[in-house]
């Protein structure tokens, strides 16, 4: 495969991840190659234990592959040291977690501004604009425990966007939501994608997978189709 790294937001070639568990090697990913082009909405689906989250960890520069190569916006990730990968996560990637990952002691606005704190940047109205975009302007001074699950996930999405990432990675973003609030989150992700944001989600939710433009099916650490 020619990953054409310059044209893709993400390009992976023969990614393999092997974990050592007791005396046994567990091959969580086995030679996965893929390309995600700018503006795509890709869903990674598959049964539990198929390696979806492992793949997302690698795409998000949160873990290093055992072998294979990975490019993000043309930069080969293996060439980067710890500091370089941190910089990439901070500047070019946005993350949405199944458990929302909000800091309970911070307000909604402070949670959204958190990546800016680590980037040592001022908000310049971005937090307000994003809260308006996700429909939570009136909740900016509330704390996470005062929000519903759907609202918390929308705060998490706003936080993922505050650094204007090139790629949004979401791990089961509707996993902790009921179907109605899940639909609202799916609609928001579709809207963001329609505005040009590249989105990769890992999901078990058929509705979310169906909303994506492309599905990648993982089974036993390999792409099935």
């Amino acid at each position: 495969m020619n990953p054409s790294p310059d044209q893709a937001v993400v390009a992976a070639e023969a990614l393999t991840k092997v974990y050592r568990r007791a005396a046994e090697d567990v091959r969580a990913l086995d030679g996965v190659s893929l390309t995600v082009r700018r503006g795509e909405f890709v869903a990674i689906v598959g049964p539990s234990g198929a390696g979806k989250t492992t793949l997302l960890n690698l795409l998000g520069c949160m873990d290093a592959p055992s072998s294979g190569r990975l490019w993000l916006e043309g930069r080969e990730v293996q060439q980067l040291n710890e500091r370089g990968r941190t910089h990439l996560r901070r500047e070019r990637l946005g993350f949405v977690f199944q458990h929302f990952g909000l800091v309970p002691t911070l307000t909604v606005a402070e949670n959204v501004a958190l990546p800016l704190v680590f980037a040592r940047r001022t908000a310049d109205g971005r937090v307000s604009r994003l809260l308006e975009k996700v429909g939570l302007s009136s909740r900016r001074n509330h704390r996470p425990h005062e929000l519903s699950g759907g609202e918390m996930q929308r705060v998490a999405i706003a936080r993922a966007l505050v650094n204007e990432p090139a790629l949004l990675l979401a791990d089961e973003p509707t996993g902790n939501l009921d179907s109605v609030t899940g639909e609202a989150v799916i609609a928001l992700l579709r809207q963001l994608n329609a505005e040009g944001l590249t989105v990769v989600v890992v999901t078990h939710n058929p509705a979310l997978a169906g909303a994506a433009g492309r599905q990648l099916r993982l089974a036993d650490g390999r792409l099935a189709g």
């Binding site: 941190t86 500047e91 993350f95 977690f97 990952g101 800091v103 650094n163």
Partner: peptide, 15 residues
């Protein structure tokens, strides 16, 4: 997990 979230959001070890 919260510290993991910080790291995922771009916090360095020094942060």
């Amino acid at each position: 997990r919260e510290i993991g979230v910080f790291r995922a959001l771009g916090a360095s070890r020094a942060d």
